[in-house]
Design a binder for these strands. Sequence first.
DNA 1: CTCCAACGTTGGCGATACCCACGTTACACG
DNA 2: CGTGTAACGTGGGTATCGCCAACGTTGGAG
Lengths: 167, 167
Amino acid sequence: MAAEPKARTAPAAPEAPPSPSPSPEPALARVQALPSWLLNRASARGRRLVTEALARDGMRMAHHAVLSAVADLGPVAQAELGRTTGFDPKDMVGLLNDLQAQDLVSRAPDPADRRKNAITITPAGRRRLAKLAELGDEANEALLAPLTPAERTLFVALLTRVVEGDD
Amino acid sequence: MAAEPKARTAPAAPEAPPSPSPSPEPALARVQALPSWLLNRASARGRRLVTEALARDGMRMAHHAVLSAVADLGPVAQAELGRTTGFDPKDMVGLLNDLQAQDLVSRAPDPADRRKNAITITPAGRRRLAKLAELGDEANEALLAPLTPAERTLFVALLTRVVEGDD
DNA sequence: CTCCAACGTTGGCGATACCCACGTTACACG
DNA sequence: CGTGTAACGTGGGTATCGCCAACGTTGGAG
């Protein structure tokens, strides 16, 4: 059954869409060339680089992002931070606990709305933020090391459009 | 302390490299423009798309990858699969359990080396693989929807080089 | 005044990615 | 021919990440 009508030297199945052997061979290569696969690997590498870069300061990527958001948005509520950075309110609590424990932000009840906490960055927080930005840039430069400067900007541009694809 | 020496209408700090306020304002925008940040978000989106695409078959991205590897490498040991796909041997056990439970692969002791399991894809596995590849392609097309065909190939090429950066 | 929505917080779940320890088996070296 | 080293598959355990459910508190709209 299913003999080889035209047995050649190369085991190539020219066309046979319905039945088995739809692809010549490299099913693995196909999967590993999938954008979703590549993005996963690249993301893992980036996370690893950033993580070990910020680990020296006892911080994680999330801390950097939240601290940046606090710096920008002045006194701001946790929920608002969660919306702008994309973190879950639950996780925001822990992140701010960490930042507050190191006096990088202050958490005071908002007098105008006592449900909210007014998060503000401290001078030490600003200093730390500058350092974190530097470390983050270093890690990202290592991440994009295989690309030329022109390719990097192009890569970031394409990546941005892919990310904005889900609105 | 630390009053506002120059209270203007716009809080712009032109230049002051060594001390605080190294950037005018958008610290958050800087973080969110970092390749590591973008890769994280893009990867999450891709994973979500692929996950929900393969969920209809009760499979995950890892199953697709492993099944592809088995299809390519013929009868192959689990450790070899782990090396080529990048999965931990521990996790490979569970993945193969899932695939075997659905008769997509067969797991037999290798007569030549009784430490190893000879993993082989079944006819049902080949059929399923074709379907998985189709679903995976659909999800990836949705992922790269914001890009033109030319941009997609370029994007994949750049991504590949970034991934290969860690050798 | 009453009801609904938002806030911060706690607890928990599922997936991913690791790392270590164990018994089994193969192989190389003395 | 032993003997030790290493690889294999497997189970157990840990850390992080993203998410959802519930609850008490507070603000605001009707």
